[in-house]
Amino acid sequence: MTTVAAAGDRLKNMPLPPAPFLSSVMQIEPQWIDYNGHLNMAYYNVMMDRAIDEMWLQLGIGPAYMKERHSSTFTAECHVRYIREIHLGDPVQISVYLLGHDEKRLHTFEELRHATEGWLSATSENMTLHMDMNARKVAPFPPDIRARIQAVVDSHAAVPRPEGVGRKVAMPSG
């Protein structure tokens, strides 16, 4: 069996992730705390990227995909909103919504929440590109991956869209 065929078989037997996908619970690392005594803005992105990596495994586009099919994803655009401070010792968990896709892109929205108290700390909305790593160019997803992505998008469409999707950076009017 070819590597691609084996990967496709693994994907068919893997259950779909929940809607929304929930990351593992993460802990704030001490070196991430800035001089203001809270989580530095860069590390919100680190944690949300870790959550995306966990979800990509469920989509079949993680490190094995890169190795076997020479394809990966790159973030093309990101909009982060910082809503409430997170501090050292706060456990966090990230919900990932797969909002949409086309043959070469994924649209995701992440909510970083306090893992035990449930309050929202930050959100991140992202556009991700599928890459042919041999050519280092944007390329279509293979049919088996596209089918799995569609199944997850359909599942996520059944839950309410999170507040903040589609927001833009602008000065308040008025």
Rank of each mutant, 00 (worst) to 15 (best):
P140Y: 01
N134Q: 15
R148T: 11
R148C: 07
V165H: 07
G118V: 11
D102H: 04
P142I: 04
S124C: 07
T128Q: 02
A122H: 13
A122I: 13
T108K: 04
D132V: 10
D102W: 01
T116N: 08
D154V: 07
A157N: 15
V153C: 11
K168I: 00
A158Q: 12
L106G: 00
D144H: 09
S124W: 00
A139F: 15
A115W: 10
R146M: 05
T128V: 09
H130V: 04
A158S: 13
T116G: 03
I145S: 06
L106R: 03
M131W: 12
S155P: 02
R113D: 09
P162Q: 10
A139E: 15
A135R: 15
F141N: 00
S124T: 01
D154S: 13
A139T: 14
A151D: 02
R113E: 07
R136Y: 06
M131K: 02
H107F: 08
E110W: 08
H156A: 09
N126V: 09
L99K: 00
I149W: 08
H107S: 01
E163M: 12
K137C: 08
K104D: 00
P142K: 10
K168R: 15
R136D: 11
E125S: 05
V138G: 13
T128F: 03
G166C: 09
H114M: 05
H107K: 07
G166D: 15
T128L: 13
G118N: 12
D132Y: 10
V153Q: 12
L99P: 01
A151P: 03
T116D: 12
M133I: 07
P140Q: 08
